[in-house]
């Protein structure tokens, strides 16, 4: 089975703060890491190979620094790593990203299943997966929380929707996006880390991909970010003073006034 996992490198920020004076992100200790949601996609990609045999390839579109994310993936146990990197890819929105990844996957040629994370923590859209499936002309199943089985050319998965679950049958090749329920990602082994250091990473640019130049990067992106700003702080609230009994008393009075108690 040929398995492709798409991962993105994102700023490893959990608690981003905005400096109220300069209006920018405070970024002490901001490093790049694999998008946390993609760790589940990677793990599932490796498990599928362990279960059904074949190869797991990891692909990422991004600047050259993204190589370190691919190396991390190699350390976890994927077989091949491909980086799509070119200045022409910069500024891509989800449409252009999906297109670029689709070109890369087509270049690989054979694939049974493509796995994406649920969403990224920076772009935070969850759009690339289904968009990529559409570009590749194949079906997708989003929010997969369990791969039940793969028999022949049929994939059986469980997906979680708003407040229900479905068992879905899909043909191969298909694309799935996976939730955090699907597995418990492994840690890299020492051996894996050593091997990953020397493992080759293929880098493909826009020439390698072929594709239409106008569909890459900023040119291929119909959406534009016009403005970035801080969320509006709420109006200052009231601090209820006194001992717990008196604080509770003041609160309940206010809730009663507002007909909430």
């Amino acid at each position: 089975m040929e398995i492709i996992v798409c991962i993105k490198q994102v700023p490893a920020i959990t608690e981003v703060r905005i400096d109220p004076e300069t209006n920018t992100l405070v970024r002490e200790g901001v490093e790049a890491a694999i998008n946390p949601f993609d760790m589940y996609a990677l793990e599932e990609g490796i498990r599928l190979r362990e279960r059904y045999g074949g190869w797991t390839t990891v692909m990422s579109m991004g600047p050259s620094q993204a190589e370190s994310a691919l190396r991390e993936a190699l350390a976890l146990g994927v077989d091949h790593a491909i980086l799509l990197s070119d200045k022409a890819f910069a500024g891509a929105d989800t449409l252009a990203t999906a297109y670029t990844l689709a070109c890369g996957i087509r270049k690989i040629g054979v694939y049974d299943i493509v796995i994406c994370g649920l969403k990224t923590t920076d772009g935070d859209t969850g759009q690339v997966g289904p968009g990529l499936a559409e570009e590749l002309g194949m079906p997708h199943v989003s929010y997969v929380r369990r791969i039940i089985d793969i028999t022949g050319k049929t994939l059986l998965v469980e997906r979680s929707l708003e407040d229900y679950y479905e068992e879905i049958e899909a043909p191969l090749p298909s694309l799935i996006t996976v939730t955090k329920e699907i597995n418990e990602p492994r840690l890299p082994s020492f051996k894996g880390k050593m091997a990953a250091r020397k493992a080759p990473i293929e880098v493909w640019n826009s020439n390698d991909l072929g594709g239409v130049l106008d569909r890459f990067g900023i040119r291929g992106s119909p959406t534009q970010v016009m403005k970035v700003f801080n969320p509006q702080p709420r109006l200052k609230g009231e601090l209820l003073q006194g001992n717990p009994k008196s604080q509770a008393d003041q609160l309940v009075k206010r809730l009663v006034e507002k007909r909430l108690a």
Binding site: V16, R17, L25, M226, V228, F229, N230, P231
Partner: peptide, 8 residues
Amino acid sequence: FGGNIMAT
């Protein structure tokens, strides 16, 4: 960015 900033 997880609600850290707003974008238009």
